[in-house]
Write a protein that binds this DNA or RNA. Sequence first.
DNA 1: TTGAAAGCGCTAACAC
DNA 2: GTGTTAGCGCTTTCAA
Lengths: 337, 337
Amino acid sequence: MTTKIKDVAAAAGVSAATVSRVLNDNSEVNPELRDRVLDAVKRLGYRPNGAARSLRTRATMVVGLIISDITNPFFTAMVRGVEDAAQEAGYSVILANADEDVDKEARYLEVAVAEQMAGIVLSPAGASQPRLDLLAERNVPIVMIDRRIPGYDSVTIPNRQLAKQATCHLIEQGWKRVGFVAGPNTTTTARERLEGYRAALRESGRAVDPDLIRVADYRIDGGHDAAHALLSAKPPPDALLVSNNLMTIGALDALAEAGLTAPGDIGFVGFDDVTWALGHRSRITTVEQPTYDIGRRAGELLLARIRGDATPARRIVLPAELVVRDSSLNKERLRPA
Amino acid sequence: MTTKIKDVAAAAGVSAATVSRVLNDNSEVNPELRDRVLDAVKRLGYRPNGAARSLRTRATMVVGLIISDITNPFFTAMVRGVEDAAQEAGYSVILANADEDVDKEARYLEVAVAEQMAGIVLSPAGASQPRLDLLAERNVPIVMIDRRIPGYDSVTIPNRQLAKQATCHLIEQGWKRVGFVAGPNTTTTARERLEGYRAALRESGRAVDPDLIRVADYRIDGGHDAAHALLSAKPPPDALLVSNNLMTIGALDALAEAGLTAPGDIGFVGFDDVTWALGHRSRITTVEQPTYDIGRRAGELLLARIRGDATPARRIVLPAELVVRDSSLNKERLRPA
DNA sequence: TTGAAAGCGCTAACAC
DNA sequence: GTGTTAGCGCTTTCAA
């Protein structure tokens, strides 16, 4: 049997209630008793039973972070931000991997409820309404990250604007046929980026050629295959915008296979940081997101909700930045013929 | 108030015990009552309270996976293996990020105990004995992954042998001065790989030149700096063995900065899969680990322990493989002068 | 300020 | 096969 609060109480010659008070340092306790309790706790190696505590208080000091793909460094980079925000408030962060799978996501949302987590940060793969209702019923706050769901708190970046800016940048560089590798249109993020791409073309007076758009799955191989397919379009694109990090890596692979170099043969812009993959030597122009800050803000917002903040759902949009490096430049074509 | 088991019992016209029996499908229950219960559960949207359940049963259907660096795809690649093994047995997997920080790791081990997780898979950053004792006391099984701790179950690869093999490969290719970027020697993994490197040199009759060894922190920048430092040794190495994936990426950066190409200017072997980073076009020779299987075996072993398997601590060593690609080859030098 | 006692929601003996 | 009852370990009234 492990030591419980009664053992500590007995050892310290006080009641269980006093031990509890000392440990949760709420009301004032006689300093002497306090010391005796603390001493007993240490001597006996007492650790409170979380289940009993949360059964009583109906909450834990744990927040859940459900990530849509644990193997994608973009998501894991946000983890530390959430952790730091949580830790400052005394909470621990526990992760789950939804694997872009709606069922798995639903399962973990249920685990979160069953384990009475204090709140959830979620990058929804497709968040089923029933589960969200479940959380709402139990007053478990939830903050969406990277992707939005109407009516819920979220922390994102201005995807549409950034994709538009990236596309405009390629056009300004003189590239004529800009292809686009889109993400799964179940996510707001992917849809917004596609919209931005379209808007840029329209506003610069170009037709949106469906042959220059490929939808893929946000993964390396998907990006590879999509880029490969695009490159074999009738007249192939002379530039490519790829809408997430993993697909960017795959697309670069496809370029290499086709014997194309960016810059030089083709203009290229990726999404998200890829230095974790390619190192600093790769001079790839990308849209870079403040991943740590996204996590951090989501964590902070969640904690505010946990503390009872009941203001209407907030949509926090953090600035992100098109970082122009070599891969998008088109020196030759800009030079007057 | 959320619905509880008594509400369901009332709605179904049975006792709480019967509801519990139906839900945990232990003993036989009259099919008719069964149906009434299931119906009531659905109608009321009842979900069992995990805290109450685990207070009673002193265990949850959750296993913890504490990872030493969540941003490292090597570790996240193992997650799915653990998840699959757990899921088949009806368990959910919850992750925590220790961030190679012994204190954080200790905190999460305590959370795991407090939350009464059924078992732990851990890639120890330095696992403090007190926490391990804590788990032992409470009979929470723990399986080490990637790194070993004497007396505990573990799933690893033959690090020493593989590092030796990789080094021998470079030597056989005709490289004369093989440098080594080592990991933090707090981990068994790093120490074993260093040993393997040394053994290879010794057995091929070469001196172990301390100037050709640099210890770094298993991260990209650490690998970069270590490789950079090695390259400025008096006579620089003409080949490099780097002992994990992140450092491999950093080291490749350093090579590029120094204007060196592998193969050609220098022989290069990395550790772990790096296709997630560099794509398939990178022809880097690496020691590849069966990450999914490592996770899976660890999960299976843990579940056996949870079920009560009390055989002595097991050291599972899974085969890994030196995959020779271009970066380590030395065609020129092997060719007779 | 401290203690006694009730009860969070569930499961497992034990009776029937 | 089903219901009754007694706790799991903790926090939190309520009295003292």
